[in-house]
């Protein structure tokens, strides 16, 4: 059975003018279907304002859809009574690292989730230890979050979610405010969790390089899922991605341009290594 199964999800924001009168409706999710299996790494792509963050917030019931069905870990997310069970099994990491760290000491922040769940003290210590270990932040356990780099702060936030022992982590643009080193750190950390702890991963982003490793990619535009498939299937459609204000990795784009110029290259090249290999074998074949 699917860990997450969404059918025809619909969500509208009500826009009000200054006096509070309803000005109009903004459809943020429009008939969205989503399937995620346990242990999968799924990426959701989309430009700013495409509805991808709104979708993420539905997955742990920070928002509730008006129409459609959503099942998370076998529980009905349309039923408000399941909110704590769902939030426990599906953790969430947000974009701004500062605005999600509650405590002034790293380990105390990681403990925040388990404390809310009423976990006994001894068990909290074990979980804090384990989850800091899993993101490589044990060394910083008694530091203040303010002294950490952006990437380190995000890893603390991830540890904070891991300490709740969720089956799935939803990351809502976790790297948008980080520099390239921070981005790499965070990605490596979450991918390791996916591989080693079999945590289901849902990564929301607009950086194409980050989704190359994903099992499945969804592309969103104006509230709808407009493309889905493996990274290779998605990235072979350069023109469509551009239409949705997205990008492809530089190697993919170059391969695409070369193909357009008449070279015989396979579709769906994702990395420069693949492109180099394809070009070299062609060169030798000549």
């Amino acid at each position: 059975m699917n860990f997450i199964k969404a059918r025809k999800l619909k969500f509208e924001y009500i826009r009000r003018d200054e006096e509070g009168n309803v000005e109009g409706l903004l459809t943020a999710l429009d008939s969205v279907d989503l399937d995620v299996r346990q242990g999968e790494f799924v990426a959701i792509l989309g430009h700013n304002g495409s509805g991808k963050s709104t979708l993420a917030k539905h997955l742990n019931m920070l928002l509730q859809a008006e129409e459609g069905t959503l099942w998370v870990d076998g529980k009905d997310a349309m039923d408000g009574g399941n909110v704590w069970d769902i939030r426990k099994s599906t953790g969430m990491v947000f974009q701004n690292p500062d605005n999600q760290i509650v405590a002034s000491v790293v380990e105390e922040d990681v403990a925040f989730g388990p404390e809310n769940l009423g976990i006994p003290t001894g068990e909290i210590w074990k979980r804090v230890e384990n989850s800091l270990q899993s993101v490589g932040m044990v060394r910083y356990r008694s530091h203040s979050p303010n002294k950490l780099s952006g990437g380190q702060k995000q890893r603390v936030a991830i540890a904070g979610v891991m300490a709740m022992e969720p089956k799935c982590i939803v990351l809502d643009e976790p790297t948008a405010m980080l520099d390239p080193n921070g981005r790499r750190e965070v990605l490596e950390a979450v991918q390791a969790l996916n591989r080693e702890k079999e945590v289901t991963l849902i990564l929301i982003t607009h950086y194409m390089e980050e989704v190359v490793q994903a099992d499945k990619v969804y592309v969103m535009d104006s509230g709808k899922v407009v493309m889905q498939g493996t990274p290779r299937e998605i990235f072979s459609q350069v023109d469509r991605l551009k239409k949705y204000r997205l990008d492809v990795p530089q190697a993919t784009l170059l391969a695409y341009e070369l193909r357009k110029a008449g070279m015989d290259l396979p579709e769906g090249i994702l990395t420069w290594q693949e492109l180099a290999e394809a070009l070299c074998s062609q060169y030798q074949a000549r």
Partner: peptide, 8 residues
């Protein structure tokens, strides 16, 4: 360009 999407 920090925080903008690729097109932006």
């Amino acid at each position: 360009t920090a925080g903008l999407d690729p097109k932006g």
